[in-house]
Amino acid sequence: MPFSAVFASLWRHRFGFFFWLGSCSVLFLVYGLYGLLWGPAIYAALLNTFLAAGLWAYAFFRERRDLLCLKNAADQIPYLPPLPENDSWEKAYKNLALALEAYCHDTLSYANQEQEHSAQYYTLWSHQIKTPIAAMRLLLQENNNRYAFEQELFKTEQYVDMVLQYQRLGSPSKDLVLKEYLLEDLVRQAARRVSILFIHKKIALHLGPIPGKAITDEKWIVFVLEQLFSNAVKYTPSGGKVSVSSDPENPASLIVSDTGIGIRPEDLPRVTEWGYTGCNGRLENRSTGIGLSLCAQTLDMLGHSMRIQSQLGAGTQVFLYFSVK
């Protein structure tokens, strides 16, 4: 038991100490003034001393017990810093209160930010989904272009799937099933789901050697690949090409390349920021700036990483690096 804790406890109970000292002094003063025998005075003073010491010891060990309980409770809360061992009760309580206040402030700021993101996203999504719905209504009236109708229906399904994935990202349970998959199988699955976009725009999809495997979640990674394919088709002119291959030096990787319009250098560092559309998004007037952000969040959740490089007018390459353990 550190002496600093004993001294701190004595200082906190200094008024009791002064009361004990004063009472003993008055007792001896009275006995001295009246010339009484000192035996009863010494006996009363000793009794008073033992009583004061007992009360102080009880208060001291009770404070130590409560302080240890407080520190044990703080250690079980992962977001709180550990409390120093030599802290007094008041200081430990103050540190814990400050830590809780900081945590509540950070939690509230995060909740407000998420609420703002959600409001922005659902506003954009509600306007965005109106376009394919209106297009399907017109195509139903004309009844002469099945492929165009299927494309608009696919866009609607994509928007619905995107909002579902957005909701799952914000939930405590993200429904993860981590298994080892062949990367080529995942690429082919995503390519089949977006094939109508390639067909409608007459864009070729070339699959290079993809020998690697990765431990990932099938549903989430196919969602990421669909987003990358959709972006590649959106910003690649008709007759262009999208290629998928692996890095020869890292089989647990994918490289999605296109021959599209590319990304401006000043936009490239910010393309995964929430709601950032960049110059290409403003030109297309259909971008929400959310697809790549969801991809980055999904890959981070799965323990994977993404890197993007692009040359304006020459195309874009997206590098995905997967976990193998």
Rank of each mutant, 00 (worst) to 15 (best):
P2V: 14
F3N: 04
F3R: 09
A5C: 04
W11P: 01
R12I: 04
H13Y: 15
F15Y: 10
F17S: 11
F17T: 10
F17W: 14
L21I: 12
S23C: 10
C24K: 05
C24H: 04
V26Q: 11
V26R: 02
V30E: 15
Y34L: 14
G35D: 08
I42V: 15
N48K: 03
L51R: 09
A52D: 06
A53H: 04
A53W: 12
L55K: 10
A59E: 12
F61K: 06
F61L: 15
R62I: 05
E63N: 06
E63P: 11
R64E: 15
C69M: 11
A73V: 07
D75V: 08
D75K: 14
I77D: 12
I77S: 08
Y79I: 04
P81R: 06
P81N: 05
P84F: 12
P84Q: 01
A92Q: 03
A92H: 01
A92D: 05
K94H: 11
L96Q: 12
A97F: 06
L100G: 09
A102I: 02
T107S: 12
S109D: 14
A111V: 14
E114Q: 14
H117L: 08
Q128R: 13
T131A: 11
A134S: 11
A135P: 04
R137K: 15
L138H: 14
Q141R: 14
N143Y: 10
N145M: 01
N145Y: 02
R146N: 07
Y147E: 06
A148S: 13
E152Q: 15
L153W: 09
K155E: 11
K155Y: 13
T156D: 01
M162G: 13
L164S: 12
Q165A: 15
G170Q: 08
S173F: 03
K174M: 10
V177W: 06
L178W: 06
E180A: 09
Y181C: 05
L183T: 10
D185P: 07
Q189L: 14
R193C: 02
I196E: 01
L197A: 13
I199M: 03
H200P: 01
K201I: 02
I203A: 03
A204G: 01
L205A: 13
G208A: 04
G208T: 00
P209Q: 10
I210L: 08
K213D: 02
K213S: 13
T216G: 04
K219C: 08
E226A: 05
S230R: 13
K234F: 12
T236I: 04
S238P: 12
G239C: 01
S246R: 00
S246M: 00
P251G: 00
I255Y: 01
I255K: 00
I255W: 00
S257P: 06
I261W: 04
G262W: 04
L268N: 09
R270H: 15
T272E: 00
L283H: 09
L292M: 01
S293I: 00
T298K: 07
M301N: 06
L302H: 11
H304W: 01
S305P: 05
R307W: 00
I308Y: 03
Q309N: 11
S310T: 00
S310H: 07
Q311C: 07
L312C: 08
G313D: 01
T316P: 10
Q317S: 15
L320A: 05
S323A: 11
K325P: 03
